[in-house]
Design a protein around this nucleic acid. Structure first.
Lengths: 151, 151
DNA sequence: TTCAATTAGTGGCATATACCACTTTTAATG
DNA sequence: CATTAAAAGTGGTATATGCCACTAATTGAA
């Protein structure tokens, strides 16, 4: 009873999202840990692998991530030779990204762990609940939040 | 058609969560920007304000956040004199946290903006959809993901 | 009471992520 | 064609977060 006298943060969409991301992120990170990659890096490598030598801007857009943030996040992966970049010959403003052979090997390795994490997650959460959660997240991610006038 | 030849990341619960968090986080941050606080800081100030001079560990647990991460996150708020800490007299291992008077004023200010952000969010997403999204996030955050055996 | 756990935080290090100012290229326009 | 505007990244700075090793304080057991 002493708890919940005040609304708490469970009403804030953003706070709940962050909290869940910390929780789930720790879980996926734990399972992927043997690979030496974080879940964010696994996701980034995968995103690169399914693109056709994607431009940085394209990756950032797909991940709804700031372009400069992507640049920073890419650095450890370049340093560890999992990823390399090159200027687009047709437009030298554009920098394209691809996996190195080692990066492909590492991705294969980490995806095995990802499948374990993913499957166990769906066992615990339930396949349907996980599915509808992802759908809801996809939906809100696609929405257009214009700045409210009163702000 | 060229798209979606491969599953993409829309199947990964963690990736979708992160992506949505970036998107929504940017929106809330934008609306709260006039206060000079990020949405994470607003959430933290609020969490402190509804507690009874909560211990750091209690805050970290409520936010499902690493204790040391909380310590780091608290630093700018202490530096700006919105928050202060003191040792629990009964157990000097425990450090308690409270808002300063300025912190209370700043919280009142940022909560006005938060209400604007929250309301507009619910207009765009729909009150019911937002509600069920938060409930789903609450649910997964409460689950216990033991490390899967194959990992 | 003494000494081995356990608990609560800290500090260092690394990644994640954003914003801003700036540079380089390209595109657009008169 | 010269100038201006727009597009794509980079680097710096700051917050967000996590892990690990370490310290201090308390608890528990011999």
């Amino acid at each position: 009873m002493s708890k919940e006298a005040l609304p708490g943060l469970s009403l804030c969409n953003n706070a709940m999202l962050r909290r869940a991301t910390r929780k789930i992120g720790q879980y996926y990170d734990d399972v992927l840990a043997p690979s030496g990659l974080k879940a964010t890096q696994q996701g980034l490598l995968y995103q690169i692998s399914i693109g056709n030598e994607p431009a940085m801007g394209a990756i950032a857009a797909a991940l709804i991530m700031d372009l400069s943030a992507l640049g920073h996040t890419l650095k450890p992966l370049i340093r560890d030779s999992y990823v390399e970049t090159f200027a687009d010959p047709a437009d030298r403003r554009i920098k394209r990204v691809r996996l190195t052979p080692q990066g492909q090997v590492k991705l294969d390795e980490v995806m095995k762990l990802w499948r374990v994490a993913q499957q166990h997650f769906e066992e615990v959460v339930g396949k349907d609940r996980a599915q509808s959660l992802r759908a809801a997240l996809e939906d809100v991610s696609a929405l257009d939040f214009d700045l409210p006038p009163a702000a």
